[in-house]
Amino acid sequence: MRAPLLSVLALLVACGDTTNPEEVNAEEVITTVALSFSPASGGDARTFAWADPENDGTPVVDPIVLADAETYTLGVSFLNELEAPAEDITEEVDAESDQHQVFFTGTAVEGPATGDNADAVVTQSYEDTDVNGFPVGLSNTVATLGVGGGTFVVTLRHLPPENDAAVKTGTLAEGVAVDGLDGLPGETDAMVEFALTVE
């Protein structure tokens, strides 16, 4: 007796949205950080990715391998591979570049966000700026310093205004060099670590 009664009740009061769970708002998710190193001397770009396309905490991380005595243009892109086709978040970051910045840290790199680093095998410098003339980090110059290896950490920080006042300044990277990433305002959208080797 109970089952038919319950089904009638269910028909009366139930709405279909319960039984059709949706994946929504996945547009905020970044599943993949892709790096493209284009050599100044010509030739094909070297591409590496930190990718967790299912966003389930099981990333596949390409080791970065660069040639010695070379200067690269490093393009950074962010993807949401939960969407099909994959959504390119880089365009949104670029459109809101006054509220975003990419920072490069790790044992392998010397740049604005690291300060002096005797162990560095590459240097990094920003090649792009936002409307205020502050660095963004979607486009960079990376030069190799010698054979060796270390870690290369790429951090995308979202810097939304607070009480309508901008929190992004022109010297955030230099602040990271002193206080670390933790001293930054805003929130981390992505922070991934690569192993980097210069051959």
Partner: peptide, 19 residues
């Protein structure tokens, strides 16, 4: 009690229906 939960958003809790 008849209860329905509908959740939309970043992964967190499921939808459910309970008697």
């Amino acid at each position: 009690t008849f209860q329905e939960n509908v959740y939309r958003g970043l992964p967190l809790i499921p939808n459910f229906r309970a008697f």
